[in-house]
Design a protein around this nucleic acid. Structure first.
Lengths: 125, 125
DNA sequence: AACGAATATTACGTTTACGTCAACGTAAAG
DNA sequence: CTTTACGTTGACGTAAACGTAATATTCGTT
């Protein structure tokens, strides 16, 4: 496991574009260090990117992703800050469970659609 | 269960807007019948809307939703049409399983974040 | 008949999440 | 020293998914 990554390395690894990664930086979701003016990404940066993209696949907006990701940051040891976080986590959990429900339903529907298709194919022979 | 619905009824039931519902019609995802110029939605229309919104919650684009939803339509008994559908279903299933994976991982992360928070809170007392 | 509530159409505006140049710096290879 | 590959910063463009008037119509009620 490398200790640092270039922007194109990450874009390839996660099948995204350098433009997107820079965009995430533009809106403050990433802040890689620099060597000269070139971006240098740490494993931690890479993890953040991974989380962002995972969120994307779940239809989570970048704005919302920021909140979620910030939860994992240490040093957020302010007291009522913590309570806020716990609350946010609850909300996210609710949303995710809803999605889980949606997905199982969709998978069920897909299964039915498929068997229907297969049946229809059979009856053609 | 009613035999028909008005646009505002549906917008309330599914917590969306009449504008959105009309938009779905604009792009051909819905085609309710009319009484005069007023839209009249059948239970089938309602189901389609439900599927659209479920897809939305999963970050599925309206364009992709169209494909999925059309799978449920009967009368698609063209032969290689069917094979295409089965293929599309497979792809969707793959994507959904990926999402399932993402979600379980996120939920795990959220659990950890939460216990961390709670721990942090305890240590403050 | 007049009114308000619901619905309609038309059309322009907005937000999100990037795509797509253009113009230039940098560093290793031939 | 030039090519090649990769990187940078603007700046403008765009597609999707609606929001938001503005205006007109319809329909049951006073």
């Amino acid at each position: 496991m490398p200790l640092e990554y270039s922007i194109s390395q990450l874009s390839k690894e996660f099948d995204t574009t350098t433009r997107s990664i820079r965009h995430y930086e533009d809106i403050g979701l990433l802040s890689p260090s620099r060597r000269g003016q070139a971006r240098v990404y740490s494993p931690a940066d890479r993890t953040r990117l991974k989380l962002i993209l995972r969120g994307k696949r779940l239809g989570i907006s970048l704005e919302d992703s920021r909140e979620i990701i910030d939860m994992y940051e240490p040093g957020k040891t302010n007291l009522d800050q913590l309570k806020k976080l716990i609350d946010a986590i609850q909300q996210q959990r609710t949303k995710l469970n809803q999605q889980l429900d949606d997905i199982t339903k969709l998978l069920k529907d897909l299964n039915k659609a498929e068997t229907d298709c297969v049946e229809a194919l059979k009856s053609k022979n």
